[in-house]
Design a protein around this nucleic acid. Structure first.
Length: 288
DNA sequence: ACCCAGGGTCGTC
DNA sequence: GACGACCCTGGG
């Protein structure tokens, strides 16, 4: 595979920090020049923005234009989504103004499942470290710009990895969860291709919940951030709890806020765009 | 030194 | 359905 380049002109809703630091992905890192480099599927890519041009440069499997259009969700009209959400209330209007360049990436389902199992009760620097070590140990090496990068390991590449191997990578108590979920997928107890065919979000969600280490929050992240692409879910973590309490519920003690109450507000106010609303609110609360 | 929190889930009561 | 335990790391 050789290096390819693609330039995207006049793309609305495309800001690198908004996309890569809104919490949906863990493998994109900022460079000294402000560009970002990341690994996804079997690609390594650098993305930079100059004036109104987005410049993609990397090692790609297949045509880089098609790869980019798919992964960066370029065919979706984010302007329309933002217009709809902005009309709901001033809170959304404000947070959308702040994270106006967010796009939801089409990330590999398997990688998203494992990444968010790792995310449980964990912090972002450590999550990123674990995923890097996992990839370096069991993924495929790709050279780019004089450096080595590693693809996220496939289920097959993890076939012979045992629980203590995971523990050595720093996974902590998530070692068994990773081991069991990988086994379930290798044994075809869950068919990831088939999951994409199922229309009913509730059914897909219930299937995900059978995986070890996948609870309500992780399931919703998988539904929203992977190729499953469901915008009608609302992942609730500590930050979303905080922002929802601050803007809507206004309880003195955020820990006493009921998850059911948050869900009620989210689904009634944001409807089938709840997932997008979550991203703007999350990004605003984390960064502002 | 000690405690706390971090994109929660799981087992137990 | 509530509650504590769980691995590990960085910061106060």
């Amino acid at each position: 595979m050789k290096e390819q380049k693609y330039i995207l002109k006049d793309c609305k809703s495309f800001e690198l920090p908004h996309i890569f630091e809104c919490g949906q992905c863990f493998r994109w890192n900022i460079e000294e020049d402000g560009s970002y480099t990341g690994v996804f599927y079997k690609n390594v890519m650098n993305v930079r923005k100059i004036d109104n041009e987005i410049i993609f440069n990397g090692i790609c499997e297949g045509n880089i234009k098609e790869v980019v259009e798919n992964y960066f969700d370029l065919k979706r009209n984010y302007e329309e989504i933002k217009d709809k959400l902005s009309k709901i209330d001033d809170n959304l209007k404000m947070s959308i103004k702040y994270g106006n360049g967010i796009r939801i990436l089409n990330q590999d389902l398997w990688e998203t499942i494992i990444s968010f199992i790792i995310s449980a009760n964990n912090n972002i620097p450590r999550i990123k470290g674990i995923i890097e070590r996992l990839s370096k140990e069991y993924g495929q090496e790709i050279f780019f710009n004089g450096k080595s990068y590693y693809t996220f390991p496939t289920p097959q590449e993890l076939k012979n990895v045992n629980v203590s191997d995971y523990r050595k990578l720093g996974l902590g108590f998530r070692d068994i969860r990773l081991y069991e979920t990988t086994k379930m997928i290798l044994n075809n107890e869950i068919d990831l291709e088939e999951l994409h065919m199922e229309k009913d979000t509730i059914k897909v969600r219930n299937t995900l919940l059978t995986l070890s280490g996948v609870g309500p929050k992780v399931a919703d992240c998988i539904l929203l951030f992977s190729t499953l692409k469901r915008f009608d879910v609302f992942p609730i973590d500590v930050w979303v709890r905080r922002v929802m309490n601050e803007l809507y519920i206004k309880n003195e003690d955020e820990n006493k806020v009921n998850k059911k109450d948050i869900e009620k507000i989210a689904y009634e106010k944001f409807g089938n765009l709840a997932g997008m609303a979550q991203q703007y609110l999350f990004y605003w609360k984390r960064e502002a």
